[in-house]
């Protein structure tokens, strides 16, 4: 198939940036979306032009490195699918495709489609862990954990930290990301001891990083490649309230 791409080009954080159009021809339906961009980039380099910068690494949908808004949707048209796992069979000959970076104040653009998501790391550093030093642990089976609790915890822990939730939210809220971490840890007995301080400090840190507030649009849940439920946001709010009173 032949495609016309409109890609956001921006040389650095202070540049204004703009959409530029490119043609890519003879695209196979078996290519991944990123492989299609690889083909474009190889052509650009051969012409002496600078290739489109985009973040990617595992190309298996698990590392959370890749992320771009494709035709208005973070990670593109397939639900529960990262951009690297999106394949060109989701498109057809003659399609025009708009490709843009995540847009959020807390995620400044580094170059083209690459954004700086270090705000996520800083939020985790404020409490997204269990305070246990190496060597402290008792036997792994010492505390039985019901399968239901373990499963709920895993549902939340599946977050890959890609930032699609922020990109999808009209308020650029990081609530789903933060709630997933709180939900992962509070479901387990190991995470309960610090539940109050964790909720308080992560929520405050999220606000301080410049993420917006949640006003229940549920766009995050729809965009999340791991299908993390917005129910965790309700739980986060509950944990936060509990930490206040």
């Amino acid at each position: 198939m032949n495609l016309r791409l409109h890609i956001w080009r921006q040389t650095g954080p202070s540049d204004h940036g703009m959409l530029r159009a490119y043609n890519v021809n003879n695209v196979s339906e078996h290519m991944s979306f990123l492989e299609m961009l690889d083909v474009l980039n190889e052509e650009l380099i051969e012409k002496g032009e600078e290739p489109v910068a985009f973040d990617h690494d595992c190309r298996e949908g698990i590392c959370g490195t890749c992320g771009m808004v494709i035709n208005g949707r973070p990670h593109g048209p397939l639900s529960r699918t990262t951009a690297c796992q999106l394949h060109m069979r989701s498109f057809k000959d003659g399609d025009e495709i708009y490709i843009e970076p995540w847009r959020a104040t807390a995620f400044p653009i580094v170059r083209d489609l690459v954004v700086d998501r270090s705000a996520f790391d800083r939020v985790i550093q404020r409490g997204g862990f269990v305070s246990v030093n190496t060597g402290n642990a008792q036997d792994g089976n010492a505390i039985p954990i019901s399968k239901i609790d373990a499963d709920v915890s895993m549902d939340a822990a599946a977050c890959i930290g890609c930032g699609a939730c922020v990109a999808a939210c009209p308020n650029s809220s990081a609530s789903l990301f933060v709630a997933a971490k709180i939900g992962h840890l509070v479901a387990l007995p190991q995470g309960k001891a610090e539940a109050a301080t964790r909720a308080m400090s992560m929520v405050l840190s999220m606000d301080a990083e410049g993420f917006g507030s949640c006003t229940n649009h549920y766009e995050c849940e729809a965009a999340c490649p791991k299908g993390i439920s917005a129910d965790f946001i309700a739980q986060m709010n509950r944990e936060f309230m509990k930490s206040v009173f």
């Binding site: 269990v130 642990a137 792994g140 915890s153 895993m154 992962h184 387990l188």
Partner: peptide
């Protein structure tokens, strides 16, 4: 395994 459980790794149960 003990260390990871203590950290909150949600192993299958």
């Amino acid at each position: 395994i003990d260390q990871c459980v203590a950290q909150g790794v949600p192993f299958a149960r």
